[in-house]
Every structure is written in C-alpha cells, then in structure tokens.
Design a protein around this nucleic acid. Structure first.
Lengths: 339, 339
DNA sequence: TTTATTTACGAAACCGTTTTCGGGAATCAG
DNA sequence: CTGATTCCCGAAAACGGTTTCGTAAATAAA
C-alpha cells in the first residue's frame, strides 16, 4: 500500500532519512530551505507516514478505545458522537469494542490493552461486572481509564456520571405529585452502581413522602427482552398493579408500553410512566413519554476531554477527576394527571 | 506499559528471540518441548505481543475501519453491531469514523487509509459525496472498500444494499391502496443513489397506478432539523396538503410527526405516513408507525463477511460481490384505513 | 561408511519511523 | 588568528516483532 516512505523522499532529495524526518517534524535543526524542499515533495508524492512504525518508536498510538455494552442504545450512540467529535479534533483514532453485557468479553478486551494498542480507554462496564481486577490491573500500570455513565465504585479513577440519585428522586417525586401511590422501579442490574443509585433515589423519594416501599415493587429486569416482557406482564396483570413506573433504562420503555397495550392498561390513566431515555422519538410516542434525559453528548465529550488532558500531561491525576453532569426531567403525556 | 516482550521471554528461557517468536506462532521448525516451555512462560508472564511491531513487519493491521455519516441513527447503530460481531469473531479491531455528512471529512479520513492503518474499510458515503476520486484512489491501489447501504454507483467494488426501489414501490403502492391520492416523497439528498432509487420506486408505483406525479410532491429535506421542520410545515399547512407521505430516512419521522401534531393533521385520517426506519420504538409511536425496516444487522454482517473473505484470499474479486438483502414493509396504524 | 536429508535452533536483516550522537562548516568572541 | 558556539546534517541505534538464511546435530538413505 503505502509505497512512498521516508527513504523514498530522502532518495529523491539527496538527503538522509533522519533529515527528512526532522524536516517533517519542523525540527529546529533543519534549515528553512530544506524544510520547504521536503514539505513540497512530501505533498507532491502524497507522503503519509506509517502510523505503526511511528507508534512502535514513540510508544504512543494516537488511538483510544471505547468499551461499551452495546451501541444500539441512544445513550451510547450519542455518547460516541461526543467522544468522536473530540477525538477527531485532537487527531486521535477511536477503536470501538462492544461487550454485549458479557463480563468475559470485557475482561479479554481490557487485557489486550496491555499491548499498547491504545493510549487510553473510555468505558462503561457491563451489568455483570462485579469483579474488577482486570480494570485495576490497567490502572495500576498507569494506563488511563476513564469511566462514563456506568462506573465502578471501587476503582479510583476519572468518572463522568450524571446525577442518577437526584434525577431518580425527582422523577419519583413527580410521580407521587401526579397521584401515584404504588410506584414500581424497573432495575436492570443488581450490581451496577448506576442502577443502584437510581434505585436509592427512588427509595428516598418514597420515604420522604411517607410511602412505604415494598420489595415487590422492585422489578429486576434482565438483558433478555422476552423475559422482561413476561415478567412485566405478570406484574401489570395483577389486580393491584403499580400505578406508576420508573424504567431505569431506555430499552425497557418499549417493553412496558407493549405490555400496557396488550393488557389494555391505559397510560397515563391506569399507570404513569417515566423512563431514563435519550430517545429522540420520546415525544412522538403513544402517549409522549416523560423522560429523564441524560446529557449523553456532553458526557462523551467530557470523558474524552479528561482523557486527552491526561495524555497531554503525564502528571495529570485522574483520581481527582469527577464530573457529574445533571440529567433533565422532561414531563410529557405519559405522566399527565388530567387525561 | 507492555514490559514483557520477546526479548524478555528469550532471556528467561535461554533461547533466541526468533525461536520464541516461532514457538508462539506454532511453527513446525520448533520442537514440541520447546513450544510448551515457551507457551507456559508466556502465559505465566502474561505476554501480549506488541500489535504495532507486528503490523509494521507484516504489513497488515488486523484492523478495519467503518466510515459512516453518523451513529445516532438506528440503522447505523445496528449495522455496527453486525460488523463488530463478525470482526470480534475474526480477531479484528474496528476503528469508527463519523463524517457527519461532511464530504471533506470523508475525503480526509479515506486519504489517511493509504498509510496502512487499516486493512479495509466498510463505508456508507455522505449525502454530499458526488466526487468520488478519493474512493477510486483507494480501490485502484487494491485497498478493499466495501459499500453498505449508501453506495457509489460509479465505483466497481463490493456493495451490500437493500431493495430500495422495490420496497419504496411497495410502500407507495400500499399508500395508494389505502386511498391516498396525493403522496409526497421526503428525500434527503439529491445525489445519494439510495435516495434516488427510493424515489424511482415511488415514481414507478405512481405511474403504474395512473397517478400523475408532480415535482411539488418531491420534498428535498436536508441534514438540518430546524430547516426540515419549517419546510414540512409549509407543505402540510397547504389546503391541498399531501394525504400520504413516504419518509425516505428515519430522522424525518420525528419531524413530520411533530409537524402534523402542531398543525392538527391527524395521522392516519388526514395523512398517512410510512417511513424507512429501524426504530424499535416505531410500534409504540402515536400512532404506531408503518415502516420499511432495513435488515441493518444482516447488512453489517454481510459487509464484514465479504471484507474478511477478501482479506483472507488476495485473489478474491470484490467487484463481483453484490448483495441485496430485502427490507420488510411492516404495516401499522399510521397507514390504517379505517380509523 | 559416506552422503543426503531432516530437525531445531540462532544470527541477522527487515518493516518505517524517531531520536541520540557526532561532526564538519560557518559564525562569533576574544 | 585561535577557540568556542551555532547551524545543519548524516550515521546509527532503537522500537518489538517476523522472516530469511545459515548451520550443527541427528537421522535416513545409499
């Protein structure tokens, strides 16, 4: 492929390889005239340096990794957008790895990073991740790890999150103010801190409003849509079904809507629904969905920005970097009182 | 980072670097006992080869690129899923590049591939791409380029598409059968072949059913949501507004729904809508959206599969590879007659 | 026994950069 | 005029693998 390299340029110009290299790097050791000669020919021949030779020598790859559970989720899609926008600015390349919520995959992917393939990683852990030695290993080697959204509590490194507790609290309070008495919380992982924080916000709001919380109202969904469907169906089929629901993850929205449709539970009359979601189509749903919308793009940008700060200054202390970017509760028809 | 390398292993084992390397590659030149010794120590010390040293020497990177307009679109998200699933199987890494429908970005990104950074590219061109020399350049150097979804007609290489003409024809016919007489087509690019094929299918269906097509019914939307909103608003505000609409791209769905809501045009009573879309939430929209759903995951997988065939056999002729995976028309409430 | 072949390994070149080091020529200070 | 700097460049080592080639020893063939 890349047929024109430094040696070729050097040959054409009657210069040494090292001189050409330095000229291209705008080194002060090289005279202006020589630099111009080199630049000119390099442009003419469309010289493009071999990134792998360069990475090998410099021990930096100008590449970062993004490790996420999946990409078919608008939060992660939009976050990638934010990450990529910063990376492109900085001239970095971004490798994408999907774990599909599989812990072993996550482990294998991170293990590979010891090879020096990437200069740092932005990640959201899987819902299965409880053991964190694979991440700890990387961190202890000084490898930059930045968590965004789904963080590991027990690892001290940069974390970009949203205000999960507070926004969940607000959403729950909103449901209560709308007259809900029996509010269910749809969790999707027992281990994920993000899921637990949201649950805590929910519980706190109930407590503050003197509503007793039952464990029966905590619905543990999984990554399996079919399973979730039957689970939610049994929940909503009960005579004393919840009159308010908080879905702690976007993908549960479709399921709960379908269940309500099937069971002829009218939203918001029979049950009011609010969901953590970044779906652009939330406002054209039937009915329009009240959402807690996470600042996905901003979180992606923030994560990338922090990483690049660390890459630019090796003394940069990632452990101190904690950013909490607030989510916004957008009230729509699915929680409307008079309808 | 990667402190344990071949030299280290060789030292510990009293072997030469070349022997260790060959042992790890399971070369026949190395005795079984030596191989076992090497493998054991490599595992113990968690040896991970430096990918860049290897790429430099072998002139292959075990990395592919995916170049797409954006990722916050369910078609592309799902397609990435398909691509990544195959790549992970094959032990390849995938670099993501977003063009944001910007031709110059696309050009710069592809130009960089001459460096040997990636072994091949899967791409969907921008809506601005008319000049295709940058792609031609790569192809003529024998660099594997696989188009998926948004292809360039004038470039002979592997193409994975869906049946844009036929599915658009079917959708239009469906609208006609639902009693629509004035059907508008929402295009999003004058140059994109995919957009034009869909338009042709639409026109053909009109012609076959003796409905005269007016240029006024071809609505050219852009990448700017706000612009599209006002454009569609003026269209739908007319007294003789369309009674049927085909949205040729997913992102226009939200816009047209909002416009109808704003203008109190009832769907499907006043206007019936069908959209090219992979939104999972289509069936819980207000009303549920009739879609032409593209086989995004399968297209991604197919594209990756073709690429890996080419990478495994250098004699593989990409020019002959054309796959058309059909879309499916899913009829829902937004085109229902009696409502 | 001699010759040919196989087996198992090491030395060294190589991939294309970057970077250190050294040195000749020119410029400057004394 | 001599010595110290500065300017500009090239030789060579280095990065960490892979691959070619050579070769000593063991084995097979003649």
């Amino acid at each position: 492929m890349a047929n024109v390299n430094l040696k070729k340029l050097a040959g054409e110009l009657n210069l040494s390889v090292s001189t050409v290299s330095k000229a291209l790097m705008n080194s002060h050791e090289i005279s202006i005239e020589t630099k111009e000669r080199v630049l000119l020919l390099a442009k003419q021949l469309n010289y493009i340096p071999n990134p792998y030779a360069s990475s090998l020598r410099r021990k930096t790859s100008k590449t970062i990794a993004v490790v996420i559970p999946e990409v078919a989720d608008s939060f992660f899609s939009i976050a990638i957008n934010g990450i990529e926008s910063i990376a492109q600015d900085k001239g970095y390349h971004v490798l994408i790895y999907l774990t599909h919520e599989n812990f072993l995959k996550e482990k294998a992917i991170l293990n590979d990073f010891q090879s020096g393939r990437v200069d740092g990683v932005l990640m959201s852990v899987t819902s299965e991740t409880v053991d964190t030695v694979h991440i700890h290993d990387l961190c202890s080697r000084g490898f930059p790890v930045i968590f965004f959204d789904r963080v590991c509590e027990d690892i001290e490194t940069a974390k970009i999150t949203t205000d999960d507790f507070e926004s969940s609290y607000k959403a729950t309070k909103h449901l209560i103010e709308c007259g809900c008495h029996k509010i269910a919380f749809l969790s999707f992982s027992k281990s994920l801190s993000i899921s637990n924080k949201r649950m805590e916000g929910y519980k706190q709001a109930l407590a503050d409003n003197k509503i007793k919380s039952t464990d029966a109202d905590l619905i543990y969904c999984t990554n399996d849509d079919a399973y979730n469907y039957t689970l939610l169906k049994t929940v909503m089929a009960q005579k004393k079904h919840p009159d308010g629901i908080i879905a702690s993850v976007e993908k549960l929205t479709t399921t709960i809507y379908l269940v309500c449709k099937e069971l002829k539970r009218a939203i918001p009359r029979d049950v009011k629904i609010v969901s953590f979601s970044n779906l652009q189509s939330a406002l054209i749903l039937n009915p329009a969905l009240t959402t807690i919308t996470q600042p996905a793009f901003e979180m992606g940008q923030a994560a990338a920005t922090v990483l690049f700060k660390a890459l630019e200054k090796s003394s940069f202390n990632l452990k101190k970097e904690k950013y909490v970017i607030p989510s916004t509760l957008i009230i729509r028809d699915s929680t409307r009182m008079a309808l």
